[in-house]
């Protein structure tokens, strides 16, 4: 069963400063239970793809369609996409001072519950629920008492993204360079978090520059994105080749 089908997608960045086509006919289908990795040179459109899927207002779709679990994704607002089960782990998570991390997580979780006509979780039950997720990521409870990403180190911010992933339990997790800036231990913990999330009903799209993440989270497919479209698809050995030879081989 497919989770997401991206068909011939074209998108431009549409801001005051820039109006450039970035995605130029991208096709990708991800089925339940699969892990896909997208690699590619800088500026090839990897981050754009993730933002377009999440609904960032700076991008305009000029062609193509995206079917997400039977829904036309491009018709939905960013919050509706999230509540329908699409999650983007940000390359650069933003800091929001004064908003407590625990309250934020519970609000995000309950937004999804409410959207799907399910009962919202009360604060006490949420404590137990979140504690289990914290343990997976070996995060201390103090983490919850801090303000959202405020003063977090690079690694802490990325762990907090994975904590959100585990909390929201989406159908599709798009991880935009979640491995960048992590030390070896943090990379292992984050990978364990991603693996704890995985099951046969959901899927992962990893955007990365480095093969090392793929040692921990093994992909079923590796795609090379270049010039706004996928130009090559292979299995995990493709990532090893790219690591050795560079993008010259494709």
């Amino acid at each position: 069963m497919s989770i997401i089908e991206i068909k011939n997608l074209e998108a431009v960045i549409d801001t005051e400063e820039s109006n450039t086509q970035i995605l130029k006919g991208l096709n990708l289908t991800i089925n339940a239970g699969e892990v896909h990795a997208i690699m590619g040179p800088n500026g090839s459109g990897k981050s754009t793809l993730s933002k377009v899927l999440a609904g960032h207002p700076d991008y305009r779709i000029t062609k193509g369609e995206v079917i997400f679990q039977g829904k036309n994704l491009l018709d939905l607002d960013p919050d509706e996409r999230a509540n329908s089960g699409l999650f983007l782990a940000f390359q650069y998570p933003v800091e929001i001072p004064g908003v407590n991390n625990l309250n934020f997580l519970r609000m995000a979780y309950n937004s999804k519950m409410k959207f799907n006509n399910q009962e919202e979780m009360d604060p006490l039950d949420f404590d137990d629920f979140i504690e289990e997720k914290l343990n997976i990521l070996k995060m201390k409870p103090e983490f919850l008492e801090r303000n959202l990403n405020e003063g977090f180190s690079g690694g802490e911010k990325k762990k907090n993204e994975i904590l959100q992933l585990l909390t929201l339990n989406p159908s599709l997790a798009i991880l935009d360079e979640t491995d960048s800036g992590l030390d070896i231990d943090a990379l292992r913990v984050v990978s364990e978090g991603i693996n704890a999330y995985r099951n046969k009903n959901n899927a992962v799209l990893l955007i990365t520059h480095y093969q090392r993440l793929l040692d921990y989270v093994e992909p079923d497919y590796v795609h090379v994105l270049s010039g706004g479209k996928i130009i090559k698809t292979g299995d995990k050995t493709l990532a090893l080749e790219l690591e050795k030879e560079g993008y010259a081989i494709v």
């Binding site: 609904g55 999230a82 004064g98 995000a108």
Partner: peptide, 28 residues
């Protein structure tokens, strides 16, 4: 805008995202 988008991408509707960020601004 980036902060608004971040909250929306976590399921906050526009109005909740707006309230959250203004709260963030004045809570100090």
């Amino acid at each position: 805008e980036e902060e608004l988008f971040y909250l929306q991408s976590r399921g906050f509707n526009k109005s909740d995202a707006f309230v959250t960020l203004t709260y963030s601004f004045c809570q100090e």
